[in-house]
Computed example of a mutant assay.
Amino acid sequence: MNKPFDMELFLAGVLTGSHATRQRHLRQAKNIQAEIEQRWQRDTPWDWRRKHVTWFLEHRLNRRSDATRYYYLLTVRLLARRLEKTWVFNL
């Protein structure tokens, strides 16, 4: 049996800021992970491709406010930094 992926441990090296900010990034990263896992069956960020994250930003956040999309974009940038990817997203 596989252990569930620990997003908090994964992001520990790149999370900075206040407690509330860190908690928001963790909550949003878990939401991103759940949506990508449900749609693409990719359960860890190591398995993700840019297209998976782009799909999330474009299709799952399309009815959200600009502020919400912006905060998710910040979380995606943290994920990309942790994965050492040079992904650039334009919203």
Rank of each mutant, 00 (worst) to 15 (best):
Q38E: 13
A29P: 02
A67E: 08
E37F: 07
D6L: 05
T21P: 01
P4D: 10
E58P: 01
F5I: 07
K3D: 13
W46N: 12
R22T: 01
Q41G: 05
E8T: 12
L11V: 00
H59T: 02
R64S: 15
Y72T: 05
T16Y: 05
N2G: 11
P45Y: 12
R22A: 09
W87A: 00
A20S: 09
T16D: 07
E58F: 03
S18R: 08
A34P: 01
R24K: 11
E84I: 06
M1I: 13
D6N: 15
T68Y: 02
W46Y: 14
S65P: 08
L79Q: 02
R69Q: 15
K51E: 15
L15M: 07
L78W: 03
R69N: 09
L79C: 04
T75S: 08
R50P: 00
K51C: 11
H25G: 00
R63S: 15
A29R: 08
I32L: 08
D66W: 05
I36F: 00
M1P: 07
K51L: 14
L91E: 03
T16S: 13
N31C: 10
F10D: 04
L9D: 07
W55L: 01
K85F: 02
A34M: 06
K85M: 11
F56W: 06
R49K: 14
A20R: 12
A67K: 13
H52M: 06
I32F: 05
K3G: 06
Y70N: 10
K30S: 13
R49W: 03
Q41V: 03
M7P: 04
T86C: 10
R82P: 04
N31P: 02
N2C: 07
R42V: 07
D43E: 12
K3P: 08
L26K: 03
H19D: 12
T54Y: 07
L57P: 02
Q38Y: 11
L74N: 09
F10V: 06
T16P: 01
Q28I: 10
Y72K: 06
K51P: 03
V76F: 03
D43Y: 13
D6T: 02
R49Q: 15
V14R: 06
T16L: 05
N62R: 15
M1L: 11
N2D: 11
W87C: 08
R77D: 08
M7K: 10
T54L: 14
Y72Q: 05
R60W: 10
N62W: 05
I32M: 09
W40H: 12
A34D: 11
V88F: 05
R63M: 12
W46E: 15
R50K: 14
K3R: 12
T16Q: 13
V88S: 10
A67V: 14
K51Y: 13
L91P: 07
S65D: 03
I36N: 00
P4K: 11
E37G: 15
Q23R: 11
L78G: 04
A12N: 14
W87S: 09
R63T: 15
P45A: 05
R63C: 06
L91A: 04
R24W: 09
W87L: 06
L61H: 07
K3Y: 13
L57H: 10
T44C: 07
H19C: 14
W48C: 00
D43S: 14
A67T: 11
Y70V: 04
R42F: 03
V14D: 02
R81T: 08
L78I: 04
L83F: 05
D6C: 01
Y70G: 02
K85D: 00
L79H: 01
D6I: 04
R69S: 11
F56S: 04
I36D: 00
